[in-house]
Amino acid sequence: MPELDALDRRLIVATQGGLPRVPRPYDVIGAGLGIAGDEVIARLRHMLDTGVIRRIGAVPNHYAIGYTANGMSVWDVADERIDELGATVGALAFVTHCYRRPRRLPDWPYNLFAMVHSQNRGEVTARVAEIATLLGDACRGHDILYSTAILKKTGLRIAG
């Protein structure tokens, strides 16, 4: 676990809602915390290097940019091949999230989750077929769970 001091935590709270859209955003954040913009930059850089920050950038609303079909594809992959195949699936351009998770037998036989965003369900189906081909006989079954409603979306926050 990377070491985060109190100032890092205040910096997270100050920026988790987003960066200010002003010419010198790091100076503005620093002014709120009583530190220089350079210090803000150095701390953000360190958090990027240690993985506390995944990346800094824009998160598009996927519906707005035309990705209206959101299919969670789930796969029952042989345990001895899942890490090798999971990395291959995760590298596909249309897969936005790819994780290994535990099965919950008998209710849930799937151990690989790959999120596929596309323009429509037909395209999701085609892409899922591509994944199925890639997995071959290491895969014993799969399903696609389409989302039909967003019930809540507040994002992940740490308490300020």
Binding site: M1, P2, L4, R9, I12, T15, Q16, G17, G18, L19, R21, L44, M47, T50, G51, V52, I53, R54, R55, I56, G57, A58, V59, P60, N61, A64, I65, G155, L156, R157, I158
Partner: peptide, 18 residues
């Protein structure tokens, strides 16, 4: 217009102790 849901650092909360 909510074309973007946010703009800024994306934190991995589990790396912050959560």
């Amino acid at each position: 217009r909510k074309v973007l849901t946010r703009f800024g650092p994306m934190f991995q909360i589990e790396r912050t102790g959560g």
